[in-house]
């Protein structure tokens, strides 16, 4: 689900960076408040653990495919939402730097889509309320599966929104959602079960390691209950909306492509509105406004002289780079 740099517009990336930075700032404040120096090495080591554990393949019974561990839910069940969130950012940063999985510009989006939902929504709204009165096998399975499925659905929906708002794909919004949500429903289910298996093991071996089990104070209980109902309500609406959209266009998923290919026009009003809105936002706030010469945007850079120029520029650049290397190696050899 890692978004690449090429898929985000600067304005979308900037907004998501700001949102993720806000959540990170608050997490740092909360971790500092805990004033537990031991937590820092534990966060570092758990980050490395999740990184490595995500590379292990787990066979899904009855199918030929395999699934992986869900990092955000797992980390926040052990470190709490704040520590878990900061650790996930670290994991995502290293993934993007060393494996080009994600990108520096898209990091804000990826942190939001994977770490924010997984850690904050997963632990504060699902894990903690369920574990309020102590843990049991059933509760751990329920919390893990529900947490992974819900947070992955939200993540997938955000990926769709961010890509649409960036205007890089011509895919209709509905089709995109219909493709993303069901896939991530299946992934979330499997990831939830793997995460549950690990947390069940931890609960049996060292229950004290689990965060937020049976520790809800009266005040917290009241607060989190109100928040829980409110936010879960909004989420249910959002996800229900997404899923029903998906379901409505699922049976004939290929129709759109065929219709388009055969030239039958089908105007999707919702999509058109979102698109127009997105383009309006982009054109007014984009980091570097489109410069216009010779008329409209569509003409820019697609003229014959543009193509010729591009070919010449690339040829000259590649040629000189090649010559530079050739002469330097020759010099080294002599």
């Amino acid at each position: 689900m890692h978004m690449a740099d090429a898929l985000v517009a600067p304005v979308v990336a900037g907004t998501m960076y700001a949102a993720s930075a806000g959540a990170a700032g608050y997490s740092i404040y909360k971790v500092r408040q805990e004033d537990n120096q031991k937590k820092i090495p534990v966060m570092g080591v758990m980050g490395a653990f999740v990184f490595a554990a995500q590379m292990i393949n787990f066979t899904i019974p009855g199918t030929g495919s395999s699934g992986h561990l869900c990092g955000g839910m797992m980390l926040s069940a052990l470190l709490g939402p704040w520590g878990g969130f900061l650790t996930m950012i670290g994991v995502l940063l290293i993934q993007c730097l060393f494996f080009a999985d994600g990108g520096l510009l898209a990091l804000g989006c990826n942190v939001w889509n994977m770490a924010f939902y997984g850690c904050f929504v997963g632990s504060l709204l699902i894990w903690r309320p369920i574990m309020k009165k102590g843990a049991s096998r059933l509760k751990i399975i329920l919390a893990s599966v529900l947490g992974c499925v819900l947070t992955l659905q939200m993540g997938a929906f955000s990926v769709t929104l961010e890509t649409m708002l960036s205007g890089v794909t011509e895919l209709p919004f509905k089709t995109f959602v219909a493709a993303m949500q069901p896939i991530h429903l299946a992934i979330g289910l499997v990831e939830g079960l793997i995460t549950a298996a690990v947390l069940l093991f931890v609960n049996e071996a060292r229950p004290e390691l689990l965060w937020g089990v049976g520790e809800a104070s009266k005040k917290e209980g009241k607060l989190s209950f109100g928040w829980t109902i409110g936010i879960l309500g909004v989420l249910a609406l959002l996800i229900g909306g997404g899923l029903s959209l998906a379901a409505s266009s699922l049976p004939d998923g290929l129709e759109w492509a065929i219709a388009r290919v055969t030239g039958l026009e089908e105007l999707e009003t919702a999509e058109a509105v979102i698109y127009a809105g997105a383009e309006k936002v982009q054109s007014t706030t984009s980091f570097l406004p489109d410069y216009a010469f010779k008329g409209s945007e569509s003409a820019v850079g697609t003229t014959v002289s543009g193509i010729v120029g591009a070919l010449i520029v690339v040829a000259v650049m590649v040629g000189s780079a090649f010559l530079f290397r050739y002469f330097r190696h020759k010099k080294k050899q002599s």
Binding site: D5, A6, V8, A9, P10, A13, L105, G167, V168, S286, F287, L288, D290, E297, S298, V300, G301, T302, T303, G306, I307, G309, A310, L311, V313, V314
Partner: peptide
């Protein structure tokens, strides 16, 4: 990434 979607030549 701020290059408009049709501006292949500029990207070169």
């Amino acid at each position: 990434v701020s290059f408009p979607k049709y501006e292949l030549a500029g990207l070169a």
